[in-house]
Design a protein around this nucleic acid. Structure first.
Lengths: 198, 198
DNA sequence: AAATTATCGCACTGATCGTTGCGTTAGTGG
DNA sequence: CCACTAACGCAACGATCAGTGCGATAATTT
């Protein structure tokens, strides 16, 4: 979010402030204070002056998208188990357990409300990871569906359950989603249950 | 939201105020003022005194859930075309075109942010309609899957695309979802007309 | 090491929000 | 038609938010 026209200065202090503010946002959202998430409140929790937040982020919407993009871009490495089914099962199970966390869910809900770009910020990196998994399968010599198709059938149910319903999205259920999805593909019948590596 | 211990009075004036407030909320959300959706702003737009909103609804969260439940509970009658595939295709196409409306989407986003119950308020009636469609098939003598399974595979992709991605959810695409979903069911071969495919 | 400047803290101000007490309007039932 | 009372409008009041000018701090460059 730093302005690129001027010289950026990611030194120790700015980084510390940014980290403290991000942590404060996550804490306040975790305490179901979604309605009262205001810049002075975040500043007080982070031990920073409110003016800093008004200058660096300007509004809660921009602050939330910043927090969401940095939260949903790290961790969750792409697996490489040797088969498409194994990769997808492991990856989607990780995604399901991630969005099952109430704190993560609160951040997602608040980010979605910031506008059409908010939802994209939550799943942008997931699509990138899914594309990498499918590309791995093609490089192995196999065939893989389009990212959009896989996202519809895999990420769709997981995020739908997390956001719209009160039913839990367990890891086993996510693995079942992968199995049924692969069964609909025309020629993915290489191996029905090749879970583990080598 | 009315207190049940006292005598409720749904006379002309209260209904008018409620309708004006609901319309004001929809208008403000349509103008991408999601961040500044405050009770005084809604009151000014509705031509009502802010005190009325503070007394009847109390907070923007409760007002939003009220608007969302009344918005997502009417219209959209359950079709009865004679076959499960036909019913689901028609219904899901209607759902897709409904959530494709930017104003409807803005209301959904704002409602989701109010808490875990917000998302449920958006799709509660959809699950009821889906249950009715599946029950119709059973009464016809056929077999139907569980509501949860159908919601995962049908509502999941539709709402996921609407909220999290920037891709359009067209009616034809929704009908394709129904076709692929029914093909995964174990004994859907009893259906004489699996897909209509224009 | 010294100069430069991005970044932050502080004090202050106008605007708006959330709430309460009280009087008025208008549905509801006798 | 009349009493009753739920619901609304009005006017105030703290409290908090959003924003601005200025000086201090610290990261970066020379």
């Amino acid at each position: 979010m730093a302005d690129s026209s001027t010289q950026v200065r990611p030194g120790g202090r700015s980084a510390k402030v940014r980290a403290a503010v991000h942590r404060a946002v996550a804490e306040l959202l975790a305490e179901e204070e979604a309605e009262t998430l205001t810049l002075p409140a975040v500043a007080a929790r982070a031990g920073v002056h409110p003016t800093t937040l008004y200058r660096r982020w300007g509004s809660t919407a921009q602050l939330l998208t910043d927090v969401a993009t940095s939260r949903f871009s790290d961790d969750l490495v792409v697996p490489d188990s040797g088969s498409l089914a194994g990769d997808l099962e492991r990856w989607l199970a990780d995604v399901a357990t991630d969005v099952a966390d109430p704190d993560t869910l609160a951040l997602m809900r608040a980010t979605i409300a910031t506008g059409p770009a908010g939802g994209c910020a939550c799943v942008e990196d997931r699509h990138r990871q899914l594309g990498a998994i499918l590309r791995h399968e093609v490089e192995r010599g196999g065939t893989a569906p389009e990212v959009e198709s896989a996202a519809d059938s895999l990420l769709g149910p997981v995020y739908y359950r997390a956001v719209f319903t009160s039913e839990p999205a367990s890891a086993d259920w996510a693995r079942g989603l992968v199995a049924t999805y692969l069964s609909t593909l025309p020629q993915s019948s290489a191996d029905p249950r090749p879970t583990d590596t080598r």
